[in-house]
């Protein structure tokens, strides 16, 4: 399949083969969702490493099939990056939300800004509890 997609102008359809080793399922579904006002989407599994994504253009769409599939692949790249950033930060995001809600429930006042520079070499995602990069285990009187 040239360029990993095939356009059928007579039917206004495009069949794209998407490599799951490059793009996560989350990224593919996220991309397809964004195009729902312009296309009908039919997804099928090719094999363990690939999906076929079949796009059928809706009526009265201004863009051509070539433009739609080009935009689809561009967005796929965006969604892949978004998906990765989201995955990498999921724990920290959860921590921020929980801390904010917890402090609100127990009536703590918003604290003064206090810059916490952990240094370039500290990675919160990889840290385990023994590393204690946030100094949580340090008694307050020793801080």
């Amino acid at each position: 399949m040239k360029n990993n997609f095939k356009i059928n102008k007579a039917n206004n359809t495009v069949k794209a083969e998407i490599n799951l080793l490059i793009y996560s399922k989350d990224a593919i579904l996220g991309t397809a969702y964004l195009f729902l006002d312009k296309i009908y989407v039919f997804i099928e599994q090719k094999d363990q490493d690939a999906w076929f994504v079949n796009l059928k253009l809706k009526k009265n769409i201004k863009e051509t099939s070539e433009e739609i599939i080009g935009e689809f692949y561009n967005e796929l790249l965006n969604q892949a990056l978004r998906s990765e950033i989201s995955k990498q930060n999921s724990g920290f995001r959860k921590y921020i939300v929980e801390s904010a809600l917890f402090s609100a429930v127990y009536g703590q006042r918003p604290e003064e800004e206090n810059f916490l520079d952990l240094g370039d070499d500290v990675d919160l995602e990889d840290a385990n509890y023994k590393d204690d990069p946030l100094g949580i285990a340090v008694p307050w009187e020793n801080k």
């Binding site: 921020i96 904010a100 809600l101 609100a104 800004e113 916490l116 370039d120 070499d121 919160l124």
Partner: peptide
């Protein structure tokens, strides 16, 4: 990521969503 001011983020999030409580 490694330059995040955690307390500021928490305070900002809380302020922006204060209507929840």
């Amino acid at each position: 990521k490694n330059k995040i001011n955690e307390k500021v983020l928490i305070n900002d999030y809380r302020r922006k969503n204060s209507f929840l409580a």
